[in-house]
C-alpha cells in the first residue's frame, strides 16, 4: 500500500471500531512458512510468512482491527497491521 503514514493512521482509526473476519469464501491453515489463505472465488492463494505468530483460526471469529494474539511485540504488531490491511484489500478478510 502506498498511502502515507497519516492516511494509514486515519484508516486505522476509522476501522478500529469495526470487526474483521475471514471472508466466508476463504479459508486459512498453518503451513511451515506461516499461514496459507485460500479464496475459492478465484480460486486464489495467499502465502503469508507469518511463522506461528497468528493461529490459523484467529480470523475465524470477529476480531477488532487492532486485535492481535497475546505475546506479539510492538514491532510485530506494526507488521501484522500492514498484513491485515493487505488481507482486507485482497478480500481474504472482510469487515463486519
Amino acid at each position: 500500500m502506498k498511502s502515507s503514514q497519516s492516511t494509514e493512521s486515519a484508516g486505522f482509526t476509522r476501522m478500529a471500531a469495526a470487526g474483521i473476519k475471514l471472508h466466508p469464501s476463504c479459508r486459512a491453515r498453518q503451513e511451515r512458512f506461516g499461514l496459507l489463505f485460500y479464496d475459492c472465488r478465484g480460486p486464489r492463494l495467499l502465502f503469508a510468512a507469518t511463522g506461528t505468530l497468528i493461529p490459523a483460526d484467529f480470523f475465524g471469529t470477529v476480531r477488532r482491527r487492532d486485535e492481535f494474539p497475546a505475546g506479539v511485540s510492538e514491532s510485530q504488531k506494526m507488521a501484522l497491521n500492514k498484513f491485515v490491511t493487505q488481507l482486507l484489500e485482497k478480500g481474504f478478510l472482510h469487515e463486519q
Binding site: R29, Q30, E31, R32, F33, L36, Y38, P43, L45
Partner: peptide, 9 residues
C-alpha cells in the same frame, strides 16, 4: 516447493 501439509484442493 517447501511442501504443503496437504493439498489445497
Amino acid at each position: 516447493e517447501m511442501g504443503m501439509r496437504s493439498p489445497v484442493n
